[in-house]
Design a protein around this nucleic acid. Structure first.
Length: 601
DNA sequence: TGGCCCCCTG
DNA sequence: CAGGGGGCCA
């Protein structure tokens, strides 16, 4: 009755699929600023002394230089690194300077011999960085503590830099640097003593100005009061978030993580791909969501063949082998491991937040990969946001050289564990703490709309429960829920109108057999629908949707042909039929990143 | 009664 | 796409 022309391939874009930009796979931070700041991580030789250093050196005797060569090289390296951090990047470079700086911090914090930086290592706290910093601490606790301290210190630096950049952006005219002492002016209400509310002493009479540190001497004095207020608010929020992270990580997560270090740091080999796969499989076995049972109508569209292309949730990782590139999955999940040692989730997430705040993408930090994801056992209420880092990017036209990945593949990545050591907990705690409810979307975005439209290809009648499981980054409220429901209602409306129009058209054109009506990718109806739900055509519409559309068309055709449209409620039976044809939505749609990335495609 | 849906309108 | 009205149902 219904055509079974099934597309055995994936549902997600094949040609415009999910790809990971190559530049990110090795963890390279994109952009000039990144390069400018992240040189220690690159393959470049040890940085040469800067101009100032050379001047100094020229005052010394050659022999001294030679004898102190080693020392000088070391010093130059340190100075260069410090300069790279303290010197504000160009505004254009700012987009990535944070990411780059994270890299720098890694380099500094781990004190890895320069040569070893050339070959990225699988970063595992137990066997990697923690061991390499052994001279800094005798016990694992001390080691971890040292790392944590560095991490926290670095976060503070980043905060200051952000403040600085904000000030600079707001007032590019002010280039004055660092003179005079600081004087404390009235802090923001409710946070007396907040250091970010301090101000520097300037000749201006405006008391509401930038932060206190030398490098933070951005001047907002020339700004309109509204902008100043915004500036202060942003700074204040950042400071608050930073404080929360620091305090909470230390108080909540550290003791436990430290105990894990004690237990495991010596004997724990790096969990290799096998171990990871093992854990992955285990994770996949207990699928957390009891999805609504498939509502396929047996005998019509619910055949097994029809299921496959519609991206039904995988029963096992292998079940998707034919529908997406597992190679891509491996690539995406392994490459990151070379980049970020464990325990860096907090900076990663913070940078994500910052990137978002600043309107930049986060894919440059995607390289956190599976390491940014707490083990599923450790995921807390905010786990949805962690999924963000385990998913891949939906790309459209620009970067499509690489193999596409279906939502199923995204699903796999989303559930990759982070490992079983204490770092996972530390990381998870950091993630939860750094991802405050504030970062949950309290409103639906255009990205969410686009995602909802694509979801419509799979489900026409999603329940609010279902929607909640697929819009994990949304802080659901009654309003949000009804808005989403309304969206789908609107989608349906458009859908039924188009199908009805098409059915009437077919009738006018003399069609007699409803069964002969089929919606193909060439048909006008499909083009119309595709244009509406899949503008840009960067999503490969599942064949299943064509079947549903075909059946809808046939139902409408038959009803109109039989004159049922005289009945005011003649559409209701059709709605009832169609409402049973929903199929499961690929897990990839649960990825938080999905709705964000869809905007870019 | 609340939730959901459809329909109409802007 | 959102708002609002009306109907249906548990």
């Amino acid at each position: 009755m219904v055509g079974r022309r099934l597309d055995p391939t994936i549902l997600f874009p094949s040609s415009q699929g999910v790809t990971l930009p190559q530049e990110y796979e090795c963890g390279a931070s994109p952009g000039e600023g990144a390069q400018a700041l992240s040189f220690p991580r690159t393959c470049a030789p040890a940085p040469m002394p800067c101009a100032g250093d050379r001047d100094q050196l020229s005052d010394q005797h050659l022999w001294d230089q030679i004898s102190d060569q080693h020392l000088q090289a070391k010093r130059a390296r340190v100075e260069s690194i410090i300069q790279g951090i303290s010197l504000p990047p160009t505004p254009q470079a700012f987009s990535t300077s944070l990411e780059a700086a994270f890299w720098q911090e890694r380099e500094r914090g781990s004190e890895v011999p320069w040569e070893s930086k050339r070959k990225p290592r699988v970063p595992q706290q137990g066997s990697g960085a923690a061991k390499r910093v052994a001279p800094l601490g005798d016990s694992p606790h001390a080691e971890g503590c040292q790392q944590l301290k560095e991490q926290l210190c670095f976060l503070e630096q980043q905060l200051r830099r952000l403040q600085e950049k904000f000030s600079q952006v707001c007032d590019s005219a002010d280039t004055a640097q660092t003179q005079g002492g600081s004087k404390k002016v009235h802090p923001l209400p409710g946070n007396p003593g907040d250091r970010l509310d301090k101000d520097r002493a300037t000749a201006t009479s405006d008391p509401c100005k930038g932060p206190e540190k030398d490098e933070d001497r951005g001047d907002t004095g020339g700004l309109p009061s509204a902008a100043r207020a915004l500036s202060q608010t942003l700074k204040h929020e950042l400071a608050e978030a930073m404080s929360r992270v620091v305090d909470s990580v230390l108080q909540t997560a550290w003791p436990k993580a430290a105990s894990h270090f004690l237990q495991q740091h010596r004997r724990l080999p790096v969990p290799g791909p096998d171990a990871r796969r093992e854990h992955f499989a285990a994770t996949r076995c207990r699928k957390p969501l009891a999805k609504p049972s498939p509502r396929n109508t047996p005998g019509t569209l619910g055949s097994p063949e029809a299921e496959a292309p519609s991206g039904a949730p995988a029963k096992s990782p292998g079940s998707h082998a034919g529908s997406f590139s597992s190679k891509q999955v491996r690539k995406n999940s392994q490459a990151p491991s070379m980049c970020y040692p464990l325990g860096l989730a907090a900076p990663i997430q913070d940078s994500q937040l910052l990137s978002q705040l600043l309107g930049y993408g986060q894919h440059g930090l995607w390289s956190s990969g599976s390491h940014g994801i707490p083990s599923s056992l450790e995921r807390g209420p905010l786990e949805p946001l962690n999924l963000h880092w385990g998913t891949v990017k939906l790309r459209s036209s620009v970067m499509r050289q690489q193999q596409p990945l279906s939502p199923a593949g995204m699903e796999g990545l989303a559930l990759l564990p982070a490992g079983r050591d204490g770092c996972g907990e530390l990381r998870a705690a950091a993630c939860r703490l750094s991802l405050t409810p504030r970062q949950m979307q309290e409103a639906l975005t255009p990205g969410h709309l686009k995602k909802a439209k694509l979801m419509f290809f799979f489900t026409r009648y999603p329940s609010s429960t279902l929607l909640k499981t697929y819009f994990l980054d949304v802080q659901f409220s009654r309003c949000i829920t009804s808005q989403l429901i309304k969206w789908f209602s609107n989608f349906r409306e458009f859908y039924y109108i188009q199908v009805e129009k098409s059915a009437r058209q077919a009738l006018l054109e003399g069609a007699v057999d409803a069964g002969s009506l089929r919606v193909s990718r060439d048909s006008e109806l499909f083009r119309t629908l595709n244009m509406h739900y899949n503008k840009g055509n960067d999503f490969e519409v599942p064949g299943r949707f064509l079947e549903v559309a075909s059946l809808t068309l046939q139902e409408f055709f038959s009803a109109v042909k039989a004159g049922k449209d005289a009945d005011p409620s003649w559409k209701k039976p059709i709605y009832k039929i169609i409402s049973k044809l929903d199929s499961d939505i690929p897990e990839g749609f649960k990825a938080v990143r999905c709705s964000q990335e869809l905007l870019c495609s």
